[in-house]
Write a protein that binds this DNA or RNA. Structure first.
Lengths: 115, 115
DNA sequence: CCGGGTTCCCACCGTTCGGTAGGAACAGGC
DNA sequence: GCCTGTTCCTACCGAACGGTGGGAACCCGG
């Protein structure tokens, strides 16, 4: 599906690929939340109000499978699982995602006015 | 829904708001396609392979209602309708969206490897 | 007048996504 | 042992999204 567009609009294909990384409702929020460092699942759920348990699991798995987040457990214990940004994830959150947040903050007035 | 997160994660709220502007499959592609200047609907459909007529209409309407795109018609004629980026839309496509595309291009190998 | 091209709308279908509810597995404190 | 907290998983449901098919309105060239 993406490849078709690559034939016509190469740069757009990249945009598409990138947007698909974050186009799930909570993924960007979780990524941003992880910028403060390795975080446990419980703390993520606590900090991000409104996200359900299932969605958090799904998002973390999705982000993990895409190489943006790693799950690190101390030994085999379950309740010590810690999620952390990978280099790729950090470059995404620190670069484009931060840009997006900055842009949104600067244009907040215009956005809320039109919505 | 967004406001709840704002209480806890202010910057994340902005990310959310921005992502919601582009989290529809074809919206970013259409926005990027419009960077080359005012474009007619037909040309957009022709250039972006894979997008359906309905989705194009929906996306254009959505982008228009959010102030990212304007629809300009020469008089009352229907087939001269031209879509164009607004200042807001241009700042989004030229800034964060371009950043995202650049990032995606740079990390293309890592992305395709993990997917 | 008539056919083709263009814009736009509507109704329907299948898939995906987010949310809820419930439970299993595991560790620690009482 | 028992209860609690935490991490996951598994159904299900409703809503939203993308895609298809069909058609209406409009303009132009034959």
């Amino acid at each position: 599906m993406i490849e078709e567009n690559c034939e016509t609009f190469v740069s757009d294909c990249h945009v598409r690929a990138a947007v698909e990384l974050i186009n799930h409702t909570w993924d960007p929020v979780i990524l941003s939340a992880l910028r403060s460092g390795p975080t446990r699942r419980k703390d993520l759920l606590h900090r991000i109000a409104g996200v359900s348990d299932k969605v958090m699991t799904e998002s973390l798995r999705r982000l993990s499978s895409r190489g943006l987040v790693t799950k690190t457990a101390d030994g085999s214990r379950r309740d010590t699982a810690v999620y952390e940004l990978t280099g790729l994830g950090a470059s995404l959150t620190g670069g484009p995602l931060a840009q997006l947040a900055t842009w949104a903050a600067e244009n907040q007035a215009a956005l809320s006015a039109t919505s």
